[in-house]
Amino acid sequence: MKLVYFAWVREKAGLSTEDVTPPADVTDVAGLIDWLKGRGEGYGEAFADLDLVRVAVNQSHVDLDHALAASDEVAFFPPVTGG
């Protein structure tokens, strides 16, 4: 599974992209976030307030209950501020 991070989520997580293999009991976005938070302080800070984090799977916006597959590209970022 490919993870990508943007803006302050990237800064707090401490990296912009990584390949991970979560355990089998991680089946959705919320589960992935819980697992990531256990991997280090930076993740804990990035995901401290999930009201401020948006998620895209395979480059489409999704909610936290979105189911995940091993081949997915999952992106985490703050609410967008373009335009």
Partner: peptide
């Protein structure tokens, strides 16, 4: 422009005299 501002994945990092900060999304958008 209304949909672009809430759906297109862009983020603005402002440089001010006080340092840099990520622009927060606005409820009005």
């Amino acid at each position: 422009i209304d949909w672009l501002k809430t759906k297109a994945p862009f983020w603005k990092l402002e440089e001010t005299t006080d340092g840099t900060n990520w622009v927060e999304a606005k409820e009005s958008d």
